[in-house]
């Protein structure tokens, strides 16, 4: 295992201290393990709290700031946060208007956020939860834990964050968050595995000419192993899976996301293929992101997320945002 760390057990604490040192706009609660905006809660505004396992940076801590999250709760690497930290964050950002929990659909995240919501409820904080489940690689049936939450989380956090910043109430912000989730789908592909610092060896193995189609953001196996294919084919596979699940049309927001170990030049190669496929299918890319937005440690690969926009969603996407990971308009 080759990592720029001090000791496997210190990764999260050290990284959080680094985030604290790097970003004066954030307050990092090092002991309680959550990150808030430095200014404290915005009076009257609905608070947005997200969280999940670490190792997906900039998600979630990098999305705390004006126009997006109020707090992020980083768990250990690839492990959901615990109720205490979520509860503390929820209480810290509540400004009287209630708090929205944005939760990626993994049993661990769901259970821990649920327990935290109960604790917050005991304190009289109103909490709504939206569970993000955009990954078409896994079946969504009542017989499974349902789809995984992946790239759409970035869209949900940005768009719900913009609505909250404008003063929308908790029900409205929650409804918007759910709308974004419902209109979004993702599909990921891994070329290499990644290694949990505490485990010391890769979470799975891939032959030199293999890729994992439909990989999860924790390196969970996906739909199938396949021979490594050209970028164009990979993009087609991903988009066809998305399109089969949610027919695409009109204006979309597209993210071509690097998983941590893939250079930007390759993401642009993929983006070209994505743009061509979509325009070939009469779909217009109205907005896009190309880069590392929700990663899986040093995994090589990419994921593609598509959201079918409405004029309202586009406007909220364009609203100013000022976070370490996403910034425009101020």
């Amino acid at each position: 295992m080759k990592k720029l760390i001090n000791a496997p057990d210190d990764v999260l604490a050290d990284a959080l201290a680094g985030v604290a040192a790097a970003h004066p706009s954030l307050t990092v609660h090092l002991d309680e393990r959550f990150i808030t905006r430095a200014g404290g809660p915005t009076p009257g505004k609905v608070g947005l709290v997200s969280g999940g396992g670490s190792g997906h940076e900039p998600l979630h801590g990098g999305y705390v700031g004006y126009g997006m999250l109020d707090a992020a709760c980083p768990g250990e690497v690839f492990t959901s946060p615990v109720p205490d930290q979520i509860h503390a964050a929820t209480t810290a950002v509540d400004a009287g208007a209630g708090v929205l929990h944005i939760v990626k659909n993994y049993t661990g995240d769901v259970l821990n956020f649920q327990m935290a919501a109960e604790l917050a409820d005991d304190d009289g904080v109103r909490v709504e939860s939206v569970v993000v489940n955009d990954d078409v690689a896994v079946e969504d049936s009542t017989w499974t834990a349902g789809r995984r939450g992946t790239g759409a989380t970035v869209f949900v956090e940005k768009i719900a964050g913009a609505a909250a910043e404008r003063g929308a109430d908790l029900a409205t912000v929650a409804a918007l968050a759910r709308e974004v989730n419902e209109r979004s789908r993702s599909f990921g592909v891994a070329l290499t595995p990644c290694t949990l610092p505490a485990a010391g060896k890769p979470g799975f193995e891939l032959a030199d000419d293999e890729m994992e189609l439909g990989v999860g953001i924790h390196g969970e196996p996906g739909r199938s192993r396949a021979k490594l294919a050209p970028a164009k084919e990979i993009a087609t596979t991903a988009l066809e899976a998305i399109h089969a699940d949610m027919p695409l049309s009109g204006d979309v927001l597209v993210m071509v996301n690097g998983m941590g170990g893939t250079p930007l030049i390759e993401l642009y190669v993929v983006y070209k293929a994505v743009a061509e496929w979509l325009s070939g299918h009469g779909v217009t890319i109205a907005r896009n992101l190309v880069g590392n937005y929700i990663t899986s440690l040093e995994m090589a690969g990419c994921s593609i997320t598509v959201c079918r926009l409405t004029p309202e969603l586009t406007e909220l996407w364009d609203a100013p945002v000022e976070t370490p990971g996403l910034r425009w308009g101020r």
């Binding site: 396992g53 959901s80 615990v82 661990g108 259970l111």
Partner: peptide, 12 residues
């Protein structure tokens, strides 16, 4: 266990 484990197994 709830406070420190995380994951699905912690709450369970």
């Amino acid at each position: 266990l709830i406070s420190k484990t995380g994951g699905a197994s912690g709450p369970l």
